[in-house]
Structures are given as structure tokens and as C-alpha cells.
Design a protein around this nucleic acid. Structure first.
Ligand SMILES: [Mn+2]
Ligand SMILES: [Mn+2]
Ligand SMILES: [Mn+2]
Ligand SMILES: [Mn+2]
Lengths: 237, 237
DNA sequence: GATTATTTTTAGGTATAACTAAATCTTTGT
DNA sequence: ACAAAGATTTAGTTATACCTAAAAATAATC
């Protein structure tokens, strides 16, 4: 356990591990407080990182030595304060870049993830500051995920529920699309189910949820209905 | 020597070596033709890459195996057609990114190099295409270096000479600032000696060249006078 | 509480890209 | 022509980040 104030730059792999530990520990709902975070299993990290569990163990050892995580063997891993800071910093890069690609360069909101995943590790703080400025310091990315501020606080989000949990007849606004699966994103984009879109829930069926978006009615498979987070609101928002 | 049409992605280090072999082999004056390129020594590569000669030899072996260079032991290295293509692609990324940072994000022209040096390896072809489009397909970067086109041709440049080679009393336009040295760039930027600036050569002295830029007169050390490339032209251009 | 299944760790191995030290080749000066 | 100097390569080492296979620990089931 190493507590230098000045640390050697982390590798792309190390940064991605820290970010994944944060995301998995938050269950897709970051609160901005390390205490609200759960221990993360080696297995789940291995799945997310597309890597063998043995490789995860190796990396966790390294990160623990650097003082960025606490790893209790067989019980999972948590971020330290230092590791949490790094993870938020990477998350800020990722989400700002997504915004920028969408708003400044005309990428579709469903296309931005892959490019951001790489660039997040390679931009300078100056670059971060300039695009944040250009964007007007946005609070959410194109998928509706909150962007940590320059001081690494997360903005409060309004209460929302999954589309699959909406009552029959209810109206609402899509506020978050919580998947990185490219096929799912493409399909949702095609249906106009982007953050900001308004939907009505017609009924829940065994195969999924029937919904109305604009003039169109769709049957949305449950898997997809669970990644859409909705803020309830009157008809046509 | 491996000649697949589909190749495994190259590492950042490999791309930087190929780019450096092109730059050193062109003596700072790329013509766009591989034949105009000279063999490059292990030593000069080691200096540019900030690495020991032994490390260069190792990398050249690898690149030769991949069919990207031809390495004659003890006599230097040249790019193959395939390696030349890769080098031009990296150069295009580098110079487009420099333009973009300068024009879209407000970086000073003297600040863009370091950021471009990293990002050049991590942007997609889609990103390249979008910024090229946004910029209106520029032919030169903020230092006055020619940008390879999307099809990897280099635009013709007008004839020019070093400031140190200008005749007494001659007027001219700065068209290229051929250094990556950060201190030199900062100084030249401070003096307004950027591409596009017009200068008059007053006289050559032992210590350097006396010049006039706008209302100001400076004594420019020879080292700096040699990195400024000038297109001759009438007073005030 | 013992047995089985799952998860996790250990041990050993690959590839990349650096390094140092020593050997070898080329150039240069006399 | 030949020795010294300089450049380059070889050999052997290190560090990162991944892998597989086998051992060990934990959790689930009877
Ligand atoms: Mn990433
Ligand atoms: Mn996102
Ligand atoms: Mn580079
Ligand atoms: Mn440049």
C-alpha cells in the first residue's frame, strides 16, 4: 500500500479496471459517494473486462499495491478514496468525450461509446477543460449518464424508474439508456428511444412492453425495457 | 517479411517509429515519394525516440518481420511501400489533430504538438474524417507542415528558403516553423513568428539574424533562424 | 457436517518494449 | 595498412499485462 501524493501515470488497463469497479459497485446508479458502493467480485470484473478471472486477480494485486483498491481475497474488491478519484476522473473524460463527439462532431448518440472508451485515457487535462467549456459544462452525457464535475462531484438526478416498471397508461420521458451493447443501442436509436424522447406505456405482456413513441407503437422486449430509465410526466411531456 | 493485406493493429511505439523513419529520411522536407527518402541510422532514431540504440535495433527487427521496413544491418533502415503508407496515415492524423486543436479548441499553435503526438494513435478513421470535414480539408497544419490527403498524397508546397538564407533587405512570409522544441516554439510564438507572419531581413550577424516583424526588430539566434522557412515576397506581403 | 459446485488464487508461460553490458562491424586518421 | 573511435548488434534482464491449467478456498446442497 503506497500513498504517494504524486503518482506515476496509470496504464489504460489500470484506469479501465478502476472505472469498472466503480460502475459495477454502483449497480448502474452512481451516487458520488464511495460509501454507497458495494464490493465487486473477480468474476464480474472478468466478464466486463473480457478477460480471465486469473488476470483480474493479478491486476487487483497491482492496484492494491498502488493503494487504489482494497482487495480482500475471495471477498471482492472496493475502491479507496484515491482509487475512487481516479475512477471519477476517467468517467468524466469518457462522458465529456461522448458529449463532444455527439454535439460538436455530429456522431450519433449510439455511436459515441467505442471512441470515448479509447480516448478517455489519452486526453490531457487541458483538452478536458476545453471541451467542457465548449459544451457549456454539461451535466449528462448522450446516454443520460451524469458527468462528474471538474471537482469530481456528481450532479443530482431526478427520480426515475425502468420502463419495465411503469404503470399501464403512464406517460414519461426517457432520461437514461443504460446499456453499452451496440446492437441494443442501434435498435433503440432506430426507434427514436433516445434520452429526451417521450413515451407512453400501453401494456405489459409476457414478451415485453407495448409502448407508443410519437405516432408509432412497438413491442419492446423486456431486456430492452429494463435499460430505459423513465422520468414520469404528463402526456407529451 | 509478411505481406498480408489485412494486418494486426500496430502499437503506438511501432507507429511512432515508422513516422520518425519517414521524417528523418525526408530531412524535414517530405515530397510524398518514397524514392526521395534516405536510409535512416539507428543512432538518429534512438535520439528522436529518446531510447537506446539497442532498443531501436530490436524494434527494427520486428518492423522488418512485419514487412514495414527494410533493414540492412549496420547500414540503416528504409520504409517499404506498406510502411510508408502507415507513416503517412499517422502523419495525417497528427497534423489534422494539430489543426483541429488550434482552430476548433483554441489551443495556441505552439501548444498543439504534445497533445497530437498522443492522440494520433488513438483516433478512429471516423474521427479523422469528421475533423477533416469540420476543418474544410486543410492542406497545412499550424506549423506550416503539409497534411497528407485522405488518399495519402502530399500537396505541393511553394518554393521557400530558411530565414538564415535570406538576402539582406529581403521581405518574406513565414510558411513553416520546422522545430518541435517547446522552448523554441514558445519564443517564436511570443515574437509573432508564426506561419503567415511577414518579416524583413535586416542583416546577418555572427550571433544571428536581425529582422523586423511588424514594428519590432529582433536579433534572432542562428539556430532559430534555421527553423523558419520563408517564401519571398514584396514588403508587407 | 460432509460433499459438490463455484469462485478465486497460484504457478508457470507468452508477447511487447524497454534497459545494460559486451561483442562486432564500419569508419577514420595516420 | 591498421589501430582507435564510433556505431550497431547481440545477449541477457526487467516490467507490464495478458493467458492456461491446476490448486485452494468459499459457498451451496443434501
Ligand atoms: Mn477505456
Ligand atoms: Mn455513456
Ligand atoms: Mn506519437
Ligand atoms: Mn506539426
Amino acid at each position: 500500500m503506497n500513498n504517494w501524493t504524486t503518482r506515476t501515470p496509470l496504464s489504460e488497463a489500470q484506469e479501465d479496471y478502476l472505472k469498472q469497479i466503480l460502475l459495477l459497485g454502483s449497480g448502474g446508479n452512481e451516487t458520488g459517494r464511495l460509501e454507497d458502493t458495494l464490493a465487486v467480485s473477480t468474476q464480474s470484473l472478468a466478464e466486463q473486462m473480457q478477460v480471465r478471472p486469473a488476470s483480474v486477480t493479478g491486476m487487483l494485486k497491482k492496484l492494491a499495491e498502488l493503494g487504489l483498491v482494497v482487495h480482500e481475497a475471495y471477498r471482492g474488491v472496493r475502491l479507496t478514496e484515491a482509487g475512487y478519484k481516479v475512477a471519477l476522473e476517467v468517467l468524466r473524460h469518457h462522458r465529456l468525450i461522448e458529449c463532444y463527439l455527439h454535439q460538436a462532431l455530429g456522431y450519433g448518440w449510439e455511436e459515441v461509446h467505442a471512441e470515448a472508451e479509447k480516448l478517455e485515457h489519452h486526453i490531457s487535462e487541458a483538452f478536458e477543460a476545453r471541451i467542457a467549456e465548449w459544451l457549456g459544462h454539461p451535466s449528462h452525457d448522450p446516454h443520460g449518464d451524469a458527468i462528474p464535475s471538474a471537482t469530481l462531484e456528481l450532479p443530482q438526478s431526478n427520480p426515475s424508474c425502468r420502463l419495465s416498471g411503469l404503470e399501464r397508461g403512464a406517460f414519461g420521458l426517457v432520461v437514461r439508456v443504460a446499456t453499452q451493447d451496440q446492437d441494443a443501442l442501434n435498435l433503440l436509436a432506430h426507434l427514436g428511444l433516445r434520452p429526451g424522447a417521450s413515451v407512453q406505456l400501453l401494456e405489459h405482456l409476457r414478451e415485453g412492453s407495448r409502448i407508443q413513441v410519437g405516432q408509432e407503437r412497438y413491442l419492446l422486449p423486456t431486456a430492452l425495457a429494463q435499460v430505459l430509465w423513465i422520468e414520469e410526466g404528463g402526456p407529451r411531456g
